[in-house]
Design a protein around this nucleic acid. Structure first.
Lengths: 104, 104
DNA sequence: ACCTCATATAAAATATTTTTGATGTAAGCA
DNA sequence: TGCTTACATCAAAAATATTTTATATGAGGT
């Protein structure tokens, strides 16, 4: 598990932008090169490059170079890790915690 | 499923802030009132109010009034919905898509 | 070596989020 | 009614993120 709030936040930041969600949807259908992604998005080339960097740094996506092209795909390790992170963040524990509450 | 990018993004925005992740962690141990949350956070009262609004609007958290107090807890419907949203976003499909790729 | 293509990076402009401080509101109590 | 407590709302400032434009880099091809 990832117990550092900042790096958890970084993963979710990758998902809170429309353009990046579109990219992710395209990648669900399989590996794509940057130029194909670009064709189907409403942003400039450097904009895509920026968004892909955010996705890469979150661990949700990986890339691979082949000659001049860069191919991106959903990371086979990162994606399941994300799912379990979300599960852990929202799973209510049955163990009482140290915080208590106002006169309850 | 939530197929609108903007509302999907809204859910993830709720999770990409350290303070809100802390709140969520506290709520995992059970319902808490705002004042208890405030005691354990590094933000002002109006700041907490802002963050709780973001969490409420994302559907991950719900609240309940009791006299002067507001109690917050992880939403029993919203949390699982989030998990399945993440699963859907990152599940690679076996069906080829309409995008193709560069000379592959 | 030079040119082009695919992508990355840097800097500036712009937009969005978060924090802060002041004020508002509603509940409960004297 | 007037006071206090718990929280919400607003507006301005501060901090961050995104977009845009220009320039750089590195792989091929001629």
């Amino acid at each position: 598990m990832d117990s550092d709030y900042q790096s958890q936040a970084r993963v979710f930041k990758a998902l809170c932008d429309e353009t990046r969600l579109r990219v992710l949807e395209m990648l669900r259908g399989g590996e794509k090169c940057a130029c194909k992604l670009l064709e189907n998005l409403d942003c400039g080339q450097s904009g895509l490059s920026y968004h892909m960097k955010v996705l890469l740094e979150s661990g949700i996506v990986t890339s691979r170079q082949e000659g001049k092209w860069t191919y991106y795909r959903i990371c086979p390790e990162g994606a399941p890790a994300l799912v379990s992170l979300v599960q852990q963040l929202t799973a209510v524990t049955d163990v009482p915690d140290q915080f208590g509450c106002c006169e309850k």
